[in-house]
Structure formats: structure tokens, C-alpha cells
Simulated scan of single mutants.
Amino acid sequence: MPREPSGAARPGSVVPTPGDDGPATAGRGSDIARDALRAAREASAAKSAQRAGERRGVPRLGRAGKRRRWSGPGPDDRDPQTLGRVVSRVALDRGWSPRLTDATVLGRWPQLVGDDVADHCTPISLRDGELVLQAESTAWATQLRMLQRQLLVRLAGAVGKDVVRRIRVVGPSGPTWKHGPRTVRGRGPRDTYG
């Protein structure tokens, strides 16, 4: 039998023409496999591009266009936070930071200035950058006045600049018996001591 050329059509078969979507496009199995492989590669490339965008910070969008609600391997604001971080964020949001800094100075006084100085004076108040110290004796009041510059430098390094701008040293005070709006002039109960 004579052989037909490979490009020739057999009798009764349909020859595909360009742009014809008729039965010839559904014909060969290898064409179907190539189309499925091409579609799978395109889907894989789109997924890889989406993952690369997420790593760069582009949010992943779901079906409705909303960001997914899980965080992934990196730290996120929705992850559990340490107590110190949460407290500092709340203090910053509510404007409590200056008060907390003042409380830090008063509460950590021995660690900030050292035990030697802390044993002989007590911080009374810290308002508007002025720290009021009460010395246990007049000699220590004089000593603290001489140490003011070193104390200011040490406090600035520990709690920040401009938290404590001035130090006022108050000497020891004796007990008072004046309680209330009405008092009597004179020596008061001290005259019974002898």
C-alpha cells in the first residue's frame, strides 16, 4: 500500500484550521496534558509570587480581599506580649510616661545613687524636673549640695536627660506639734521637757 504523507488528512477526518475550536482541539491526549501542565505551572508561579510578596511585607489577600488572621513564623502584634512591653505601651498611649519616670527615680533611689548616699538622704518629691532631697543631718545636707553635679550626671545616665534638672537639698526638720488651722503661740508642749 502506498503510504500517505504525514500532513495529509484521511478521508472522513476533520482537518483543524487556525481559530477553529471544533472537535479537533479536544483530539490528542498529549495536547490536553500540555495544557494542564501549563495551567499548573502558571498557578504555581502565581502562588510563589504571592509568597514572595508576603515576605516583603505585602499582605496576603483572601477571597473577600481581607488580610488573613494568623501571624506566621515572625513576631506580630497579635502574639502574646511581655508585661513590661504592654505596660510601657499603655503608659505611652495615656501620657503616663513622665509620672512613671518620676516614680522610677523615687523607687530605685539606692540603685541610682549608691547605698552610701541613699543611707543619708531621702528623696521627697520630683516635680517639673526638680528633685527635693531631705538629708539626715546638716553635714550631709552640705555634702549633698557639693555632690549635686555628680548626682545629676548619674541620674541623667540612668533615667534619661531632662528628667532631673535641679536638686534642692533640705536639711533635717524637727517634729512639729502644729496640726490644724488653730495654734497657740509659745513654746507649746516643749516646755514640759525640762
Rank of each mutant, 00 (worst) to 15 (best):
M1W: 14
M1D: 15
E4M: 08
P5W: 14
A8Q: 11
P11W: 02
G12M: 00
T17C: 12
T25S: 01
G29Q: 04
A43E: 11
A46D: 09
K47Q: 15
G53Y: 04
R55L: 15
G62M: 03
R67C: 07
S71W: 07
D76H: 05
R78D: 08
V87A: 13
S88I: 06
R89T: 13
P98C: 05
R99K: 03
R99D: 12
T101Y: 09
V105S: 00
L106E: 06
Q111L: 11
Q111F: 13
Q111T: 14
L112N: 00
P123C: 04
G129M: 00
V132T: 11
A135K: 03
E136S: 14
W140D: 05
A141L: 02
A141P: 06
R145W: 10
L147M: 15
Q150T: 02
L151V: 05
V159P: 02
K161R: 07
D162L: 11
R166N: 07
V169Q: 03
V170C: 13
G171P: 01
G171Y: 02
P172Q: 01
P172G: 06
G174E: 10
G174W: 08
T176F: 01
K178V: 04
K178I: 02
P181K: 12
T183F: 13
V184P: 02
R185V: 10
G186Y: 04
G186Q: 01
R187P: 15
G188M: 07
P189I: 12
P189F: 05
R190F: 08
T192D: 14
